[in-house]
């Protein structure tokens, strides 16, 4: 970075901290740092407190590994939710997407997917915890909600192979055309799955 010798040390430090964030280049980092410099002290304090709290107060739910302030998390504590269905997702953010559509079962967060080339293997995912839950809880169905990518599919197949011998039903989100899609540009794999999964009116 091109901070001159005259830049005070605290600003340089802040610029470097912003620069470490994903998607923030050196110029954006400078702009953010100087923006913070101009904001009222309370706002800067609030930002600092938010950063501190997120590390101090947020942890993983001991049941489903969702990120949470209270352990177990609100989804795992809620007795109205259907405990016999577990929806398995790649990351905690995916829970928000599935909540939006009204799913009312339980979750399990893997915190990653199998990625053989990048060296992410089964032991890097939270699979052991999932198997433990299937042993302890009355689970009838595991819904694999990993992405329909090579890595997501491989993860779903892997979990299926682990779980199927326990006599639990394993299902997979349907694959096909997203709304607003263009048939002309759709890849053959998606299109053939869409055709196979067609439904009567």
């Amino acid at each position: 970075m091109s901070e001159g010798a005259g830049t005070p040390e605290p600003i340089t430090r802040l610029i470097e901290a912003f620069h470490k964030l994903p998607g923030i280049g050196p110029k954006s980092a400078q702009r953010l740092a100087y923006h913070v410099l101009r904001t009222p002290p309370q706002e800067a304090e609030a930002l600092a407190a938010a950063l501190r709290d997120v590390k101090a107060r947020i942890r993983f739910c001991s049941v489903c590994l969702n990120i949470t302030e209270s352990d177990p998390c609100s989804y795992c504590q809620d007795a109205r939710r259907d405990a016999s269905t577990i929806c398995v997702v790649e990351q905690a953010l995916d829970i928000l997407a599935i909540e939006r559509i009204g799913f009312r079962g339980r979750y399990h967060v893997l915190h990653g997917v199998l990625n053989p080339i990048e060296g992410v293997g089964p032991e890097e995912l939270h699979l052991k915890e999932l198997l433990q839950r299937l042993g302890n809880e009355e689970v009838k169905e595991v819904i694999m909600a990993t992405n329909p990518s090579l890595e997501g599919e491989a993860t779903a197949m892997y979990v299926h192979r682990l779980v199927a011998p326990l006599g639990v039903r394993v299902s997979r989100l349907a694959r096909g055309l997203p709304s607003g899609a263009d048939l002309e540009f759709t890849d053959d794999l998606t299109l053939s799955r869409a055709l196979e999964g067609r439904q009567d009116f």
Binding site: L114, P116, Y158, H160, R161, A164, V170
Partner: peptide
Amino acid sequence: FVDDVSRLPVGATL
């Protein structure tokens, strides 16, 4: 990964 997969119980595909 090939080794990990080869250790899985043999079962049906999805």
